[in-house]
């Protein structure tokens, strides 16, 4: 981009009870592409410097743990956490590494690294809200990053980027906002999600909205119409999927004829009901020409 060496922003990414889907989603970022993110300025003047990322770094084992330890001493990094943090049995359900005979749990790593970070980004619904890892009956006592902040009195600024997976634009767009507007000027909603990406309901921008308004509902997958009856959680889910779309705008969930599962919500996956069953607390406009929607 320019010839002057820009400001390096150290980034540490640690992983708890994850599926690595947050990383594979991030890897598919298009503008900037991941090679741009790794090698070039993400916005003019700022370069992300990936100190620690388990999926891309060369070092393993002791050396990897040493890199993390040194970074923790130097402070002033952005900490990205994906995956939930198990707290049951002292966090034994996720051991992230070992150095000189000492094992580190994800819980210990979070408590060690989060207080000295410039900001913490909880990436994906597991880190932001517990998500799949904390799904009922939550066998391992999995908690979100925010939960750990509360129980351990950590005051570092926290931004949640939920989604299962999160869209890569939601992560890098938020980092771009942080760097250009300043961390304090990134507007967040009540669940600490950036309003730029999570400010509107799926429903508000859905191309099937007209079908919903006129009461034309698909009865089975493949039918024309709104997918509300087939379990779409779009009416209660905040994300910009309908406008942004996915994977270089090739498609998105509702575009592929499938109902939204509400994956950016704190209630995902337990409190939204079955994926293919209708949510019941939304007012449905009455269409006199059609039979009334039966409540279960």
């Amino acid at each position: 981009m320019n010839n002057r060496k820009s400001t390096a922003v150290p980034v540490i990414n640690i992983q708890g009870q994850n599926c690595t889907g947050c990383a594979t989603s991030t890897l598919c970022t298009q503008y900037p592409a991941i090679k741009n993110v790794l090698l070039q300025d993400i916005v003019p003047g700022f370069k992300l410097d990936f100190i620690f990322h388990p999926n891309i770094m060369t070092a393993s084992g002791n050396l990897a743990m040493e890199i993390l330890e040194n970074a923790a001493k130097e402070k002033g990094y952005v900490l990205i956490i994906d995956g939930a943090i198990p707290t049951g049995d002292n966090g034994i359900y996720c051991v992230t590494g070992e150095k000189d005979g000492k094992k580190y749990t994800m819980l210990e790593e979070t408590v060690r690294l989060a207080p000295d970070a410039l900001a913490v980004i909880a990436l994906g619904t597991c880190a932001a809200f517990g998500g799949i890892a904390a799904g009922n009956p939550n066998p391992t006592g999995a908690q979100s990053v925010g939960d750990i902040f509360l129980t351990h009195d950590i005051k570092t600024p926290l931004i949640n980027i939920p989604g299962c997976p999160p869209h890569p634009d939601w992560l890098f767009g938020t980092i771009e906002e942080m760097l250009t507007k300043g961390l304090g000027n990134v507007e967040l909603d009540d669940f600490r999600r950036p309003k730029t990406f999570y400010g509107k309901l799926i429903h508000e921008n859905c191309p099937n909205r007209a079908y919903f308004d006129e009461g034309k509902f698909a009865k089975k997958l493949g039918d024309e119409g709104c997918l509300y009856e087939l379990g779409c959680k779009g009416p209660i889910t905040y994300a910009d999927c309908p406008k942004r779309q996915w994977n270089g705008r090739t498609n998105w969930v509702i575009g592929s004829g499938a109902p939204c599962s509400g994956c950016t919500s704190p209630e995902y996956p337990d409190l939204l009901g079955d994926f293919y069953h209708r949510i019941i607390d939304v007012e449905v406009p009455v269409n006199e020409k059609r039979p009334k929607v039966q409540k279960k």
Binding site: G21, T24, S25, L27, C28, T29, Q30, A33, I34, K35, C164, P165, L221, G222, W246, N247, G248, T250, N251, W252, V253, G255, S256, G257, A258, S261, Y276
Partner: peptide, 30 residues
């Protein structure tokens, strides 16, 4: 890194999104 993204984009035409496809449903593909 580019090819990985492009391959996932191609499959998303049928799958709905990457990762975690939405369109694979019992009975076929939506």
């Amino acid at each position: 890194m580019d090819i990985y993204r492009k391959a996932q984009q191609a499959a998303t035409i049928f799958g709905g999104k990457w990762p975690h496809d939405a369109s694979i449903v019992s009975g076929g593909v939506s």
